[in-house]
């Protein structure tokens, strides 16, 4: 009975988030930015059609897809590691992806619109997550996993800086900002088609792990006794995250905090079933990224803020609240 009730609640939450996502997407399509600051609408019919189709539509689609990916993968990683601090950014999946993309891009293996770029990102992301598992996979201890993630993150970020310093392009060292902070400015539909073929299989793998994640909340041994092989669940979540986050990072750089904040905000609404958190987190991530990217365009005239700056500004306070509440829980 209660399961039915909470299933109903889960779908109502999804429907509500879906409506909000549509509204945010409409806002994002309407909002522009010219030299004088934010603009609303499109300008003349001919110009407007081009602006809508070629500039704002790809930007909005990428905000939805990248935000959704980060929300979904954040929720899945939190379930897998049974750790509310897990997130593609904190665990090094995103910075590993950035390292892979930077290696492929700056050493001339691929232009900005070649499929090799996201594949490099996927490889980097996969390596980071594999390393995380090697360091902390057996332990579900909160501290070990987070420390391993921090170490990998710092290591891959340092390698990215190193690679950019040695890159032949004289501007590579300046472009580090893009890879570290993320941006959706002036992407085209080409970038959507570049990321999507990796994101979709990534999402499907993560979603296929949903019931395994629920079983894991009872502990690995219980999950195994229920017929869910914990290693299969791990494989699904890690590979799926690497594919989807790799695709995202290759076209937008590292956008932090979305995967951390969104599942955490939504968890009280769905109860502690990781499977029920996946779809709402996808929608919530899409919502947050789209709103954050729209906020950028609402800023006063000047060079554009990076998306990662805005998501971090929005996300960091939640992160601190999470730290404080877990400290209080530990004290009690």
């Amino acid at each position: 009975m209660s399961a039915t009730l909470s299933t109903g609640r889960h779908w109502r939450l999804c429907a509500a988030l879906g409506v909000l996502v549509l509204a945010a997407a409409a806002l994002s399509l309407l909002l522009g930015r010219s030299s004088g600051g934010p603009t609303i609408g499109f300008g003349g019919p001919e110009l407007g059609a081009v602006i809508l189709r070629e500039i704002r539509l790809p930007r909005t689609l990428l905000a939805l897809l990248v935000g959704g990916t980060l929300g979904l993968c954040g929720a899945a990683l939190q379930g897998l590691l049974r750790n509310p601090l897990a997130e593609p950014g904190l665990l090094g999946a995103s910075s590993g992806a950035a390292l892979g993309a930077v290696l492929v891009f700056y050493f001339g293996l691929a232009g900005g619109d070649s499929l090799l770029l996201p594949l490099g990102a996927v490889a980097g992301s996969l390596l980071s997550l594999a390393l995380l598992y090697a360091l902390a996979g057996k332990s579900s201890d909160l501290l070990t996993v987070v420390l391993a993630g921090i170490a990998i993150n710092a290591f891959t970020a340092a390698l990215t800086s190193l690679v950019l310093n040695f890159a032949p392009s004289p501007y590579a060292a300046l472009e580090i900002l893009f890879w570290m902070l993320g941006s959706l400015a002036d992407r085209s539909l080409v970038h959507v088609w570049l990321a999507l073929p990796l994101m979709i299989p990534g999402w499907l793998l993560v979603i296929a792990a949903a019931r395994g994640l629920d079983a894991l909340t009872l502990g690995e041994e219980t999950a195994a006794s229920l017929g869910f092989d914990p290693r299969r669940t791990q494989w699904l979540v890690v590979t799926g995250t690497a594919l989807a986050v790799g695709g995202a990072v290759a076209v937008t750089g590292v956008v932090g905090f979305v995967g951390l904040v969104v599942p955490h905000l939504l968890r009280p609404w769905v109860g502690h079933h990781p499977s029920r958190l996946l779809l709402p987190s996808f929608l919530g991530g899409a919502l947050l990224a789209t709103l954050a990217d729209s906020t950028i365009r609402l800023m006063p005239p000047g060079p554009e803020l990076k998306l990662g700056v805005v998501t971090a500004l929005l996300g960091a306070p939640f992160f601190l609240r999470l730290v404080i509440s877990s400290r209080n829980a530990a004290a009690n």
């Binding site: 930015r33 081009v50 602006i51 005239p301 554009e304």
Partner: peptide, 9 residues
Amino acid sequence: YGTAEELLR
């Protein structure tokens, strides 16, 4: 500020 939307205008 070097964005495509400005230039389109």
